[in-house]
């Protein structure tokens, strides 16, 4: 349980933000915190695939895109009931994950990376082609879902969703299902010969992670009051991978810590210079080359 402490600490911090923002930062701070939490949900779900399942998906942002567009289109068309939106999102995301998962999971290694990347691009271009809903430019939303009208409710719903996602993934990883998934990451042939159907289990994990990220997309649409194809761009999938690796793959707290660090780094660097990517790019290379195990390992080594 000790390894969960950094995540629990991060949750407490998020819970305190609305109160803190009254003294410093105001709505800038709360919206920053909401962005970090949504990113964390995406990363927590991606870590089930990368960190625990050994499936390096490079198209995970597509699910965020799907979720935000389902919400965006529903809200534009006058459907503001959150339950309906969520039901639609879960259905569409699960279907998309199922179809693309069946094809992608026939391959492994680098082919899997490229295929998930390509499916992500497919979503990106499809969203860009929706000319009735903003096309390339994205779509400004005039309503939030009815349940999210109050800012505080939205904030704590996002926090609630993050805690729930994290708890769910933690339980899954420690379950029977998770054990097989983790074992297959290390030695697939062995797990197969023990009589497990690795394909089916990976596909299940892929669908779970996809649906979870799509729900994060719904929250994102409501928080930003704007949806854009850029949410599904492959660079955003890259960001999600960065968050997972930066925080520490396959650890209890890594994805949450990574999201916090990523948002802080992005904000910190971009306040220094407009061209913050000139610093972030090389930093990323240095992290890959010289820092193994991510932020979570700093904590785990101590205790």
């Amino acid at each position: 349980m000790r390894n969960a402490l950094p995540a629990l600490f991060a949750f407490a911090l998020f819970a305190a933000v609305p109160w803190l923002s009254e003294y410093w930062g105001g709505s800038y701070l709360t919206s920053l915190a909401m962005r970090a939490m949504i990113l964390a949900i995406g990363a927590v779900s991606l870590d089930l695939l990368i960190g625990h399942g050994g499936m390096v998906s490079f198209g995970h942002a597509a699910f965020l895109g799907i979720g935000s567009y389902v919400a965006g289109i529903a809200l534009t068309e006058g459907t503001t009931d959150l339950t309906t939106i969520l039901a639609l999102t879960v259905g569409i995301a699960a279907l998309f994950a199922l179809v693309t998962g069946v094809i992608s999971l026939r391959t492994t290694g680098v082919s899997f990376i490229m295929i998930t990347l390509a499916f992500g691009q497919m979503v990106f271009f499809t969203l860009s082609a929706l000319s009735d809903y903003g096309g390339d430019d994205g779509l400004t939303l005039w309503d939030r879902a009815t349940a999210f009208e109050e800012d505080t409710v939205l904030y704590f719903s996002i926090l609630g969703a993050l805690v729930a996602s994290w708890f769910l993934i933690t339980r899954i990883v420690g379950s029977r299902f998770g054990r097989v998934l983790r074992a297959a990451k290390q030695n697939e042939a062995r797990v197969e010969t023990l009589g497990y159907g690795v394909f089916g289990m990976r596909l299940t994990a892929y669908v779970i992670a996809g649906v979870m990220a799509a729900i994060a997309g719904v929250l994102l649409a409501n928080q930003a009051e704007f949806v854009s194809p850029a949410t599904a761009a492959w660079q955003r999938s890259g960001d999600l991978i960065i968050v997972v690796v930066l925080g520490g793959m396959g650890t209890r707290s890594g994805a949450v810590l990574g999201a916090l660090a990523f948002v802080a780094l992005e904000e910190g660097l971009s306040s220094l210079t407009h061209d913050w990517r000139l610093i972030f790019g090389p930093l990323l290379i240095l992290i890959v080359l010289y820092a193994k195990g991510g932020l979570a390992s700093l904590w785990e080594r101590r205790v």
């Binding site: 029977r176 054990r179 097989v180 289990m201």
Partner: peptide, 18 residues
């Protein structure tokens, strides 16, 4: 235990701590 699990009911269980 992973091997024992293969012979002991479904592995599509997502919650209990294995």
């Amino acid at each position: 235990a992973l091997a024992a699990q293969a012979k002991d009911g479904s592995s599509y269980r997502f919650f209990g701590s294995v």
